[in-house]
Amino acid sequence: MIKLEHVSKSYSAGIPALNDVNLEIEDGEFVFVVGDSGSGKSTLIKLLLKELEPTKGYIRINGRKLGDIRHKQVPKFRRNIGVVFQDFRLLEDRNVYDNVAFAQKVVGEPNSRIKRKVPLMLSVVGLAAKYRSYPRQLSGGEQQRVAIARALVNEPSILLADEPTGNLDNNNAWEIMKLLEEINAKGTTVIVVTHNLEIVKVMKKRVITVKKGTIVSDSKQGDVDDED
């Protein structure tokens, strides 16, 4: 479970990126976070990853207060959270297999497990046949699938997706969303930050709308507060 209690975050300029946010996300939920640029969505993601510390309030993930996690324990904490980005952030000098294996290598998984796990993960995202291709040889949708495979290969309980369809055409965007839905169906909590209201409206998942650092609506039925 993810729980934010009166969370505020201000940067040096003093204007709060998030202001007194209270939020609960149950295990296994699929949640969209929507809002304009600068509304505080990315700050929320960074707080959940413990890249940033809240100025006020507390964040708990799986019962653990993030403020109590010491610097040395952060890597272990992050292994429970997968993350994908709009720009995929793949390593261009490594092929698909190595990009996914990279996530396992950095957490010290044995080679035997990597050799078993990576092809399995690539087949989940539908890229088993392209394991030798380099990122530049793949379409945007395929690159995002590799990024998702990399995020999931260490079996995190939470997947954070920051604008995962932002660089994709409509067809690829839908394919990625279907993939995320499948991943969620297997028990992973999925939080998707997006601008793509069309997808949000169609998928009928929980939607949290953020405006100027404040949650203005939280709809379990997939309703979007898109009035300006």
Binding site: K72, P75, R78, R79, R89, L91, A103, V106, V107, N154
Partner: peptide, 16 residues
């Protein structure tokens, strides 16, 4: 730099 950023997000230790 990019690789290091990804490593940190994936959960690589400071040592690694």
């Amino acid at each position: 730099r990019e690789e290091i950023a990804i490593m940190k997000l994936i959960g690589a230790t400071d040592y690694l």
